[in-house]
Amino acid sequence: MERGYRDAVRAKRARAALVAACIGVCILVSAVSAEVDVVKLFANIDKFTSYLGRIFVLENGRPVWTDPVEWYWGLGRWLSLLLETVLIAYVGTALGAIGGTLLAFLAAANLSPQPVVRAVTRRYFELCRTFPELVFALIFVIAFGLGPLPGVLAVAIHTMGALGKLFFEVTENIDMKPVEGVAASGAGWPVMVRFGALPQVLSNFVSYALLRFEINVRGASILGFVGAGGIGQDLIEAIRKFYYTDVSAILLLIIATVAIIDFVTEWIRHRLIGEQGAA
């Protein structure tokens, strides 16, 4: 028995070693490809800390919190840009969620009217999901010009892909009995989805959309990097032109906004899921 135990342990160790070796080789190959240079990193690591230090020091050499008025000199402008950012995220999330809801029923295996429709919808979701908003924003900025409009469309497209996938997965797990009941009474496809499927999935959909809203606020804060509206435009200008204290001021505003929205959406989601559990 002892030998059996030893053999089992040895086999397990051999497998672990094999996995470790595979991961090691992958790391080595990627390190070469990504031009990793540990020497340079450690030689210059002080630049990282000094950058983080410098964004909190005013031009007169005192830390920023000694003079908040000087630090947040552009507060009015930044707040209005921040508001625009949140609005871009909200409208983008809403449009994306509405589009995703409509298409998700076409993509769900249990409700889809046709296998071809299902396959096409799923490929479309994949295309929308694979590319980050910024890529869509780059293309839309050329078509629609600078401003928040291409930003909203980019967020909406990416959100449609990301939510669409989650939505049709939820839809595939529903109880089919109400759907069959509605179909048996002679309803067409839209009525069947509306009264058989939608009531079962709506609270899940809303919960996912709220989660996405928080992610999109974060994403919308950098859309300005490519000229698609929001606070990103001022942020990249501050970083590129080395307006150190502006960088920290804007970043803290964004972090605070995201934290507040995170908190609020979390609270709503818990209430939604709680109600569903009680019902």
Partner: peptide, 27 residues
């Protein structure tokens, strides 16, 4: 939370100051 709150592109811009342009900054 703070690390997560700053977008990856902003981190990239900061790391470019340290290790220069290139994929290492992305990593």
């Amino acid at each position: 939370d703070t690390l997560r709150g700053v977008d990856v592109l902003v981190w990239a811009l900061i790391w470019i100051n340290v290790v220069g342009l290139g994929p290492f900054a992305g990593v």
